[in-house]
């Protein structure tokens, strides 16, 4: 089981859950299982091309997956995957 932490923005799409336990051995599999359990998250994390939206950051434990193997980043039992919005302005 891998814990996925959701930001407040996405919780309404996941029955209000702050975190969801999912299965998967890569970020792609984790996100696929997350979306299977909460179909309302479809399109919120990945764009239609299947890559991470630029306004979403995904971490495996402390590491931004963009600096690892992106969606192919390996995930192990007990890891925490955190999804956070990119916060920016001018």
């Amino acid at each position: 089981m891998v814990e996925v932490r959701l930001p407040t923005l996405l919780r309404p799409h996941a029955d209000g859950a702050a975190s969801v336990g999912v299965e998967g051995s890569s970020v792609a599999e984790v996100l696929a299982d997350l979306t299977r359990r909460h179909p309302g998250l479809e399109g919120q994390i990945l764009d239609p091309a299947g890559t991470l939206h630029k306004f979403v950051n995904v971490y495996v434990n402390d590491d931004d997956v963009r600096y690892l193997d992106a969606l192919d980043t390996k995930v192990s039992e007990g890891d925490v995957v955190s999804i956070l919005p990119a916060v920016a302005g001018g």
Binding site: R5, P7, N57, Y59, D62, D64, S82, L84, A86, V87, A88, G89, G90
Partner: peptide, 15 residues
């Protein structure tokens, strides 16, 4: 001086 982006790791730690 014109734009900001909250550092992602700082956000993770704050969260």
């Amino acid at each position: 001086a014109r734009t900001y982006t909250v550092d992602g790791r700082d956000y993770l730690r704050a969260d």
